Computed example of a mutant assay.
Amino acid sequence: MADSSSPPVATEATSAATPINFILLSLFVFLVYLRLKPMKPQVLPRAPPATVFRTFTPPELYPYNGLNGMPVYLAVRGRVFDVTAGRNFYGPGGPYANFAGRDASRGLACGSFDEDMLTKDLDGPLDKLDDLGDEQMEALQGWEERFLEKYLVVGKLVPVGSEEAKAAAAQQ
Rank of each mutant, 00 (worst) to 15 (best):
L24E: 05
L27N: 01
V72Q: 03
A85P: 02
F56H: 08
Y62M: 11
L44F: 08
M70A: 15
F28S: 11
V80H: 01
V83M: 02
T55K: 01
L24G: 07
Y64V: 00
F28W: 05
S26E: 10
N65K: 03
A17F: 08
G78R: 03
V52Q: 09
P59G: 13
R77P: 00
L74M: 10
Y64E: 00
R79I: 08
N21I: 04
L24P: 06
P71L: 12
P63N: 01
L61H: 00
F81R: 13
A50N: 07
L67V: 05
R35S: 15
R54A: 13
A10N: 12
N65I: 03
R77L: 02
V76K: 05
P8K: 04
F56K: 06
G78N: 03
Y33T: 10
T51G: 07
L31A: 13
V29P: 06
L34F: 03
T18V: 07
Y62L: 12
N21V: 06
F56Q: 06
F22C: 02
T51W: 03
M70T: 08
V83N: 00
M39S: 13
M39T: 09
A47S: 14
I20W: 05
L36K: 14
P7A: 12
V29A: 15
V52R: 15
F22P: 02
V9H: 04
P58E: 08
M39H: 10
G69V: 07
L25V: 05
Y33D: 08
Q42M: 08
F56D: 05
G69D: 08
E12G: 08
P8M: 08
A13C: 04
A10T: 13
S5E: 09
P59Y: 13
P8W: 06
I23P: 08
L36R: 12
F53A: 00
N68Y: 10
V29L: 14
A47Q: 14
S26M: 10
S4Y: 13
R77C: 03
P19V: 15
T14D: 09
P71M: 14
M39E: 15
G78I: 01
L34S: 02
P59F: 11
T51I: 13
M70D: 09
T14R: 11
T55V: 07
R79Y: 10
L61I: 02
T55Y: 02
Q42L: 07
R46A: 05
T57R: 00
F53L: 04
V32A: 15
